[in-house]
Every structure is written in C-alpha cells, then in structure tokens.
Nucleic acid binder design. Structure first.
Length: 332
DNA sequence: CGTCCACAGGAATAAGTGGCGT
DNA sequence: ACGCCACTTATTCCTGTGGACG
C-alpha cells in the first residue's frame, strides 16, 4: 500500500509548494537581486512550527540554484548544530572547503575562507532561536558575500539577546510571516502525499480530516500521523487505513517525538522530568527538594534551572504562572 | 501599598574533554 | 609526549521581576 515511502519522510521536498505562494514570492523577491549580480536582501521567516517555513526556504534555494550558476546555497539546522563551530562548519560545508577543518581550527581561519568567497552565498539558518551562541550571527553578517535567511518561531526570541546594531539590521530585513495551516490546507497537503506515495483509495477524506484536526495546523505532525498509520496498515497487510489505525497513530506520532527527546537527556535531567510527570504539576522549590532527595550527588539549583529550560526547549515540560506562583507540568 | 522573597536567567569562571600540530 | 584551542558542563555570583503577604 505504500508505493513511495519518501513522500512521507520529514525531509521530503515537493516539486511544487501549495498554499504558500505569497510567502514564496516575497522570499523570491528578496533574493532576486542576486540574479543581476546585486546583493540580495536578508530574510527572516517567522511562524509556528510545521507552517511551511523550512519547506519554502529549501524550495527557494533549489529554484535559485536552478536559475543561476555561480551562486552557492546551503541549509543549516541550528537545532542540531547549536554552537559556533558547528554552524561555521556547516556553512563552510556548503562551499566544499571543509576538507582540512577540525575542532581546533581557529575561527578566524574559517571566517577568512568565507570572506575569500568569489560567488554570492545564500545560507538558511533554521531554528535560529536554538542557537546557544549568537556571536556567529554577527560574524556571518559581517561577510558581504553571504546572504542569510533566518527561520524562527518568533522574531522577539531571536532579537532579544542581540546587540543594538544587529537588531536594527535584522529589523530592516525582509520579514515573511507564516500562519499555521488551516484544516482544509492540511487536508489538501495530505491528499497530495497520498496521491504521490500511497495506493489510491487506501485512506478516506474523512480520515484525512481527522488527522488534520489532530495536527492543529502543523503539517509536519500531520504527515507524521499519516506515516505512522500507513506503516501500521502495511505491517498488518491491510489494503486500507482503518479509522482505528488513525486514532492509534495520533498519540503514537507524538509519543515518538517525545521519546526521541527523552533519549537525549542526561540521567539528572531525566530525574527532573519524571518528577514533573509524577507530580502532574509542581512548584520549582518542591521540585528541587524532591530532586535533591532522589539522587546521590545533586547538582546546584542553578544547574537545575538550566536543565529545566532544556526540558522546555524540547517541549517536554511547560511552565505556567510567573514569579512565585510558577509551576511546571508535563506537556500533554 | 510597600516590602520581601522565590524564582529566572545573564555573566564570569573553573575543571574536564578531544583532536591536532609540533 | 606535550601544549594548544575551542567546546562542554557545572558552579558561583548577581540582577531584575512579579506575586505573596503583612
């Protein structure tokens, strides 16, 4: 029943982008000057996750490379590469000069190589708000050949921690806003994937609507649910996806993401996480007390606060209330 | 209504790690 | 073998903030 598994993968890039023409055009317009040999405008794509930002950015890079020889482009996921070295390394990778780069290569040399570039270079920095050290942004902005396309959930999260100069520069670049997809849009995106990769008629319109509803505007989640349901159907050698499989796939797709994140935690972080899960809702002070008693050599409170912000970044826990009335609770 | 305190998170610092060049 | 360089993690110190409480 799965004819082409690739179209259900996270990194699949459709040949045509639907429902995002306005954003496509704005980004294309910002980059357009490069065709005439001028400096393109930096761009900033903002919006909730799964709203098509990454997709549009990658798509635009592909179109640009198609049209124009002698422009380099590259995509960097700052979630996976969250420090200066890794970002610079990935950026250099895009122009194929990493053959003799290693951990202890001075940053100056890496930057020098970028400054020596002959051709314009467009870099997408996805999830830029996950960057631990923003110095690298300033460094990249200092290189005239490089045009950046930043992607983040919220503009303010990125701007907040930057100095004045960089802030004003970022404010003046082309900002393209994305909203979450509507249910109808999600259904049509899912229908496309079904058409390209699954047997026709193996899933009903009503089922796609159920999936779209559960995904709450997030296309990545929606496709994840569809993928999970299709895999189960295939494993049980059914020739269609049943309603029951869809219902099961909804929590499962979420659990998979959570599982992946929990695996990336250290043992101390996991203790905090399970304490929060057990309590359902817990005040910071109580949490630290219990943590101190739960482990042999407890870390300091400050370190735990760092752990907690990591748990929040991974979307495992959330905090509500400010100041003294703050409580942590698990997500979902 | 003002004070106090728990809490968040920035900055500086120290100890430990890993891979490289000499 | 050794020092270097940059990274990572944890810690100490500190400031700003908003709700609780007298």
């Amino acid at each position: 029943m799965i004819r082409d598994a690739r179209v259900l993968q996270d990194d699949f890039l459709p040949k045509e982008v639907v429902h995002r023409h306005a954003q496509m055009n704005r980004l294309a317009a910002a980059l357009e000057p490069v065709v005439e040999g001028d400096k393109p405008q930096d761009a900033f794509l903002v919006g909730p996750s799964g709203a098509g930002k990454t997709c549009i950015a990658r798509y635009s890079l592909d179109r640009l490379e198609e049209r124009l020889l002698g422009v380099d482009t590259h995509y960097v996921d700052c979630w996976q590469h969250s420090n200066r070295f890794r970002v610079l390394y990935k950026v250099l990778e895009g122009v194929g000069t990493t053959y003799d780069i290693h951990r202890s290569t001075p940053h100056d040399e890496m930057l020098q190589r970028l400054e020596d570039l002959e051709d314009p270079y467009v870099v997408v920095l996805d999830e830029v708000d996950q960057l631990e050290n923003r110095d690298v942004l300033r460094e990249l902005y200092g290189i005239p050949q490089i045009t950046t396309v930043l992607i983040a959930n919220r503009t303010e999260d990125v701007l907040r921690t930057l100095d004045e100069r960089l802030q004003s520069r970022l404010r003046s670049c082309e900002t393209v806003r994305f909203d979450a997809y509507t249910n109808d849009e999600l259904v049509s995106i899912l229908a496309d994937r079904v058409r390209w990769g699954l047997d026709p008629d193996c899933v009903t319109e009503a089922q796609l609507e159920t999936i779209a509803d559960a995904a709450a505007g997030n296309a990545r989640d929606a496709i994840g649910i569809l993928r999970s349901a299709a895999r189960h159907a295939e494993r049980s050698e059914a020739d269609a996806i049943t309603d029951e499989l869809v219902e099961r796939a909804i929590p499962e797709a979420r659990a998979q993401i959570r599982q992946k994140n929990v695996e990336r935690l250290t043992s101390h972080q996991r203790v905090l996480y399970s304490l929060i899960c057990d309590a359902g809702e817990i005040a910071p002070g109580t949490l630290y007390d219990r943590y101190e008693r739960a482990v042999d050599e407890p870390r300091t409170e400050r370190t735990c606060r760092n752990y907690l912000s990591k748990l929040r970044r991974y979307n495992l826990v959330a905090a509500s209330g400010e100041g003294r009335s703050r409580v942590y609770h698990p997500v979902e």
